[in-house]
């Protein structure tokens, strides 16, 4: 059957083997303007690909290439380029932008990704806020309260964790050093769970206090905490008392 003359409504051009354009279809002019050279309209990332593939040695070829951003656009345009060499000198070239469906999907994916990223970002912000709050809570979990000239009370609050103990360790050592304190009461009444790491640091803190010549008294241990306390092996210089009430009576009576 007779083949149709080229009159298809698509960006179509004829060029020589040096990529110089000989003729253009109307559609090609609408898309690229009056260009003289094929490589002028190509994105840099595609140049070496085109030079490598578009040669008379490859008689017929379809490849993907990217055009420089068109008009208002800011991103390269992905196209399918179909090349057929009429002879060793001239080639017919069709350049067809990728199906819009594809770019639509790509765009949607990009939007989804950026939404995920935003959410991730918000979560991170919340996490940091929460960490600040925990840190703040930690700092307030072992206040140093002076009862008399010589006696101070440190009520411990909440879960004894390594983080919390690290946070309070230094301020407490400082506070005990600066005052004329010689007795420190640690009250466990408000303590919940005791972590192994946290307990270890607490023990070190108490031992340090003993070395500094202070007497350490622990009050308010509950039955369920006893097991953990036993494992820790507190220094034998530390005195245990049943309740804070008893301790106050003994050490704070004027």
């Amino acid at each position: 059957m007779k083949r149709v003359e080229r009159s298809f409504p698509l960006p179509h051009l004829i060029m020589n083997k040096n990529f110089k354009i000989e003729s253009l279809s109307d559609e090609a002019v609408t898309m690229f303007g009056e260009v003289n050279h094929l490589l002028e309209i190509m994105d840099e990332g595609s140049l070496s690909k085109i030079k490598r593939w578009v040669t008379p040695e490859v008689h017929k070829l379809s490849i993907e290439i990217a055009l420089k951003p068109l008009k208002e656009d800011k991103n390269p345009v992905t196209c399918d380029m179909h090349v057929k060499w009429k002879n060793d000198l001239y080639a017919e070239v069709l350049i067809i932008p990728k199906d819009e469906q594809l770019s639509k999907i790509t765009k949607t994916m990009d939007q989804l990704r950026s939404r995920l990223n935003d959410t991730n970002f918000q979560l991170l912000e919340e996490k940091e806020k929460l960490e600040e709050a925990i840190q703040h809570g930690n700092r307030l979990s072992a206040p140093f309260i002076r009862l008399t000239e010589e006696t101070a009370l440190i009520p411990l609050f909440g879960h004894i964790t390594a983080d919390k103990m690290y946070t309070v360790e230094e301020p407490l050592l400082h506070a005990t050093q600066n005052e004329d304190t010689d007795k420190v009461l640690f009250d466990f009444t408000a303590v919940g769970q005791i972590d192994e790491d946290g307990a270890q640091i607490l023990k070190n803190l108490m031992t340090s206090l003993c070395y500094m010549g202070l007497q350490v008294i622990i009050t308010g241990i509950r039955p369920e905490q006893v097991k953990r306390i036993q494992i820790i092996h507190f220094s034998s210089e530390i005195i245990f008392m049943n309740s804070l009430h008893q301790a106050l009576k003994k050490y704070c009576s004027y």
């Binding site: 070496s48 690909k49 490598r52 593939w53 490849i63 993907e64 992905t78 990728k98 594809l102």
Partner: peptide, 10 residues
């Protein structure tokens, strides 16, 4: 690989 025309943008 894209440059070698072995894979597509997709």
């Amino acid at each position: 690989l894209w440059e070698r025309n072995e894979i597509s943008v997709a």
